[in-house]
Amino acid sequence: MTTKRADGAGDGFYPLAQPEEGLAQLLPEIILSEKPYPIAALIVNHANPARSLPNTTKVEKALAKLELLVVIDVQMSETAQMAHYILPESTYLERLDPLIVSTRLVSEVALRQPVVKPLYDTKPATEIITGLAQTLGLSRFLGFAVEETIQAQLKTIGLTLESLKKSGVWQGKTELTQGPPRFTIPSGKVELYSEALMAKGFEPLPVYEPPRTMPDIHAFRLLTGHEAMHTGTATQGNPYMAALSKENTLWIHPARAARLGIENGNLVIVTSPTGQVRVRARLTEGIHPEAVFLAHGYGRDSKLRPFAFGQGGNDSALIADQAEPLVGGAALGETIVTVRRG
């Protein structure tokens, strides 16, 4: 029995999207519209869709509609707050994980091993998932221990778990660094003209398409991004990271700010078609006058993460959920916002 992926990754709407990666940003729309089919339950592991996905209001509405939401995590995220069941996960220092594979110029395989026994009543996600599978009678698909997964992975490069436990990291041959790299696509090169795109009915060469939205003289294009100190929505509750960067600020060009009567450090209200946030302004020449920038991961409402609670603004509340047509990626640069003192 095979069921088509609801997000269409690898087939259907987005044939060129990677099914292993999936298109999480389409999930709220799929849950709410029940197309291509209804989704009743969701198991979330080490992810925080209630903050990481665009259009927070819509995401929270979709998560609330689920009959069953299970969250496996090391911390009380906004998604975990909404869950019917939270299955507490061991931290990375307490668990054995499937291999970490890096495919840069020199390929690397790394093993994450526990250095302490779990301090509390937690389990690694792999154990939680195989345990759930066993109870649900799905052991045929997911009934193997993490050691077996690692050993199967290692077989392809002729290593054993025991040897990797000693070395920790395995490095591939370094031939790739001498001479140009070869890619696994048929041409073996960087493709400006893509046969794969043409075969699926897309333009094989990059073509200019104007943005879907344009700001008028009173509005701004909202840009978002990550700061070096933080990782997604996972670290804002860490006191050491919060001490370095506690809240995000709205980067705005001084000339535009002056016209709006906004000075450096003023509180401003940023409004988009999907939401509104209140943050401090940071006047900077480092931003295009037609755009504003707001770093991702702030504006949190999980009370169990006191260092992050209520600090800065949630950029995801402002961003519309739009998919880019080629591979279904989240179109994060298509949101127009207005800014006023507040």
């Binding site: 050491y240 990271m241 919060a242 001490a243 370095l244 900077t284 480092g286 006058p289």
Partner: peptide, 28 residues
């Protein structure tokens, strides 16, 4: 900054290394 804090067991607000930043020029 953080490696130093971990090495010496400092509190989150105790910084023996401060990374200052500055901005120069006119857009772009």
């Amino acid at each position: 900054t953080v490696a130093c804090q971990m090495e010496w067991g400092l509190e989150s607000y105790e910084h023996w290394i401060r990374v200052l930043s500055s901005e120069d020029g006119i857009y772009p």
